[in-house]
Design a protein around this nucleic acid. Structure first.
Lengths: 335, 335
DNA sequence: GTCATTTGTGCAAACGTATGCACAAAATAT
DNA sequence: ATATTTTGTGCATACGTTTGCACAAATGAC
């Protein structure tokens, strides 16, 4: 049958102390004498005892578990984020309960199950919180951080790249290169990420006198970017420069250009957003706006920890500036 | 402060029943009358009550949590696997506690912490179990499945692609294309995956009269594959065909070829292993051996579930055949 | 009408730990 | 020497559930 679970009581009996003492030996209680502590730990080691985290959680009212809800795992950006989160949290002594959602609606179904496990905090990566769930989570007093999305009225904290200014930087880059016929390959319409990148881009274009900009949907995917670029490049008035809502779509666009024999950057400039590892691959050499992943993750974790320590803190929005990484997909200055 | 946690007792008082009855209303106990059940659930809904999974675990001795230890998240194959695992397990009513390990050694440090949470089962993706940990886990009676690795003596179940035969199929493909000067770009030496793919490949070459095959280390990474291909292609006796231990290294090799102006497949054939989404991208069109991801995951979950239900079952090794996906990176038959 | 059966609910004990309080023993002060 | 403080440990309770058992009420048989 199921292997014996060793309990603190068994260790106690074998070591000739009380169960409380065993508990104290593991919790590092100061008052325990050196000798008993060593004896207890020795017996525990022999028996293969480790405190049951579940039982401990019940009494301490802390599970030391952070729930992470993630989606879009097909975009390489997110596995990297997920790995960094789990690694970071782990180093800080937390565990991660992972949920993956296909779409935003799924998050609503998932969340109650996460909450049943009494997670101490919640990180939601690239998905939004419905107002119903935001309320539910707030009522329970569970700190939440949204990563790469924000929902101003939700009361949840959020960390995101400064997409607005990122879009502006891309606009400047392409205008400085002398382009005038521009296009934006969009991501999902209902995401702040897509909206802000576009808004920053278009606002800056307008400020510099370019009122017109074509748009196509790229769905944040390779296939979507490929198809969007095909439509644009085969139209009667093809653009000279593409700003893609994220890198993976930009890679699709580059492959579309390659397929059509459109030379990059001579005939077409392409800029992405994210700076995923593949952007640096020599087949692409994509110029892109790097999201400061490490900083964003560190900030998210910091915000979360602060709110777990001090549940009274209000939600906060943090925008971290990105960096332009110039590779080979934008033509040189002034043509 | 921390929001009130609603307990079954509060629901009970408000509904005018005992705490046990609330519990039974949620566990779907047959004997409860329709009317009280509805009344209880209604009150619970109003109060926002959900059973505390932690407390439940303590008494049922089942956490409904599966621990997943994963590594190599930079290879796109694994995020896909991870997502599929969490999705599948979730549909079956299980939760996933995620741990990411950098290297194999880390797994040993991680495992005790996973075990402290009393996981009901363990999936280890692309990392091996030290014999010490295998023993520890066995003593506790926790079912383990290794994914993409196997450790015969460990007693742990394992699911893997039939890498041995996969290597043979690649050998046949390249020999049929008329190649004789071949090279293998290896992955990590201490993995069964790398060993089996190479062994199958070399064995088949030998059977068909090719005794010699160059080898370089590609480390299962893009950069590694790129560098290995550079070394091979710039040597005095460059190979006509490359078999790369996985796709991501093969993509690196293709980019190396592109950089050197070596045409694929006219001057060089390249074959990968995995069939990650990028292999199908038009920039690469990589011929590769597809790992039957879905089947492997389904098998892993099945093995694990069986062993959770029936802890007496012995460990089992399951090898699932891969499929050759012929795209454009191997020259046509007989040159 | 009584007695046997069924149905629905409550009681209380567990699960494995943490921790406030009490208190004995040892150390220190007077 | 006694009185006071410090140190180390045990007792008992609590955390929020599930579940075997007991039992009252309702139902049915006669």
């Amino acid at each position: 049958m199921r292997g014996k679970r060793v309990t603190s009581l068994e260790v106690a009996l074998k070591a000739g102390v009380s169960q409380s003492t065993v508990s104290r030996a593991f919790s590092g209680d100061e008052r325990l004498s050196q000798s008993t502590r060593e004896r207890v730990l020795e017996v525990a080691r022999k028996l293969g005892y480790r405190p049951n985290a579940i039982a401990r959680s019940l009494i301490t009212q802390r599970t030391q578990i952070i729930g992470i809800v993630a989606s879009y795992m097909t975009n390489p950006f997110f596995p990297l984020v997920l790995q960094a989160f789990t690694q970071t949290l782990h180093e800080l002594g937390w565990r991660v309960l992972l949920f993956t959602a296909g779409t935003n609606e799924d998050v609503d179904d998932l969340l109650p199950e996460v909450l049943a496990y009494q997670v101490d905090g919640l990180i939601i990566v690239t998905a939004t919180l419905s107002s119903r769930m935001a309320k539910e989570v707030r009522r329970r007093g569970i700190p939440v951080v949204l990563f790469n999305r924000y929902v101003p009225e939700s009361g949840a904290s959020a960390v995101s790249c400064d997409n607005l200014n990122g879009g502006r930087m891309v606009a400047d880059l392409l205008l400085d290169a002398g382009h005038t016929r521009l296009a934006y390959i969009a991501g999902r319409e209902d995401t702040s990420t897509n909206q802000d990148r576009r808004r920053g881009f278009l606002e800056r274009l307008a400020e510099r006198g370019i009122e017109h900009c074509q748009q196509e949907h790229g769905h944040f995917t390779y296939e979507g970017g490929f198809a969007a670029a095909m439509r644009l490049l085969e139209s009667h008035n093809p653009p000279e420069a593409l700003f893609c809502a994220n890198d993976i779509a930009a890679l699709g666009a580059l492959d579309a250009a390659r397929k059509l024999g459109v030379r990059v950057p001579q005939d077409l400039s392409v800029v992405g957003f994210d700076d995923i590892p593949m952007a640096a691959w020599s087949a692409y050499n994509l110029t892109t706006l790097r999201q400061p992943r490490e900083q964003m993750i560190a900030a998210s974790v910091r915000l979360l920890m602060e709110r777990i320590e001090n549940p009274g803190l209000p939600g906060v929005l943090e925008f971290i500036p990105g960096t332009l990484i110039e590779r080979q997909t934008v033509r040189a200055h002034g043509r």
